[in-house]
């Protein structure tokens, strides 16, 4: 089990999981643990010779047992693919999988938050290149979500409105909009911390994956794919990113929390990365090298 240590200065939990030092690190394609097990080859995490979508408990979990869960979501058996290369229909099925796992993990006794995410690219620190995401079921509400939920609750008390609905409403002029249909919007928020940060959100108020209807799912899948295609066209190469789904916590927050997905690509140009350094890490103050209006226009044009 991990050790949870409380930082009284930031009032945040730090999770200590030393066994993660030994996790599989950049295996060759023939030794990929997320591929199906090929006849005559060593068994991978997935013993069958093929699969559609597979989810399993992380072998090197940050949370397990009574603390929570860490799951790996294998999007496809195709080692050389990516989330953005999946069909809209396949992404709709992935949404159903994310929803299933969110609901099931949210029912575990000590789980306070279910977080669906993907790290993509070596630049982000990915150690397995096979297309996959992860789900963390935390025994606490993580700090970023905690602050977001608190701000949303304050805004709701003060105005009676959802904070994120108001954020979306501010995008009426379209200047920071990357894509939009009648259900979802993709935009670079005015407060983006990364040059090509994008938020995807349902334009109608929804608290989490479980609140999306079939039309929402279809639009979500289509707009997610289009954003990822734009990302890979941006510098004519697979763009690394963190994809972070901000859902309501299990059993609460549906009224004031607005489900959305945040993307943080580390690139500020094709060959230059933004590193979190003195101001960001030591002081928590992000300095961003680009205006959201300009990067949104770039992405919109792709």
């Amino acid at each position: 089990m991990s050790e949870l240590r409380w930082d009284p200065l930031t009032e945040e939990w730090v999770t200590v999981a030393p066994w993660r030092q030994d996790r599989t690190y950049h295996p060759s394609a023939e030794h990929c643990p997320l591929c199906p097990t090929r006849p005559g080859m060593e068994e991978t995490e997935i013993p069958e010779p093929d699969y559609y979508i597979a989810v399993f408990e992380n072998r090197f979990p940050s949370y397990t047992g009574d603390q929570g869960r860490c799951e790996v979501v294998c999007y496809t058996p195709d080692h050389d693919s990516s989330l953005g290369e999946q069909s809209v229909d396949h992404i709709r099925d992935l949404i159903a999988v994310w929803r299933d796992r969110t609901t099931e993990l949210g029912r575990l006794a000590n789980v306070k938050y279910v977080y669906v995410f993907e790290n993509r690219g070596e630049e982000i620190g990915v150690t397995l290149s096979h297309p996959h995401g992860q789900i963390y079921a935390y025994p606490f509400v993580p700090p970023v979500l905690q602050r977001e939920l608190a701000a949303e609750a304050r805004h709701m008390r003060k105005t009676g409105r959802c904070l994120y609905c108001d954020v979306i409403d501010d995008e009426r002029d379209g200047i920071r909009t990357v894509l939009r249909d009648d259900r979802w919007i993709a935009f670079v928020p005015p407060f983006a911390r990364w040059p090509y940060e994008v938020h995807l959100a349902p334009t109608n108020h929804r608290g989490g994956l479980a609140d999306l209807d079939e039309e929402d799912d279809l639009s979500f899948a289509a707009i997610l794919k289009r954003v990822l295609q734009k990302y890979d066209r941006l510098f004519q190469k697979p763009l690394p990113y963190v994809m972070a789904m901000h859902q309501k916590p299990p059993g609460r927050g549906a009224r004031h929390h607005h489900f959305h997905v945040e993307f943080y690509p580390p690139n500020r140009t094709r060959d230059k990365l933004k590193y979190l350094a003195g101001s960001e890490l030591g002081a928590g103050a992000f300095i961003v090298d680009a205006r959201a209006e300009d990067t949104a226009a770039e992405l919109r044009a792709l």
Partner: peptide, 30 residues
């Protein structure tokens, strides 16, 4: 809001791995 009558898009099959961890195969409902 989702309707309870909606037909699921995927069905799941849970198996136990040799070390006790679970593995879930999600298959497309045809």
């Amino acid at each position: 809001m989702r309707l309870a009558t909606e037909k699921p898009r995927v069905k799941k099959r849970v198996v136990k791995k040799a070390d006790g961890r679970y593995l879930i195969y999600f298959e497309k409902v045809s």
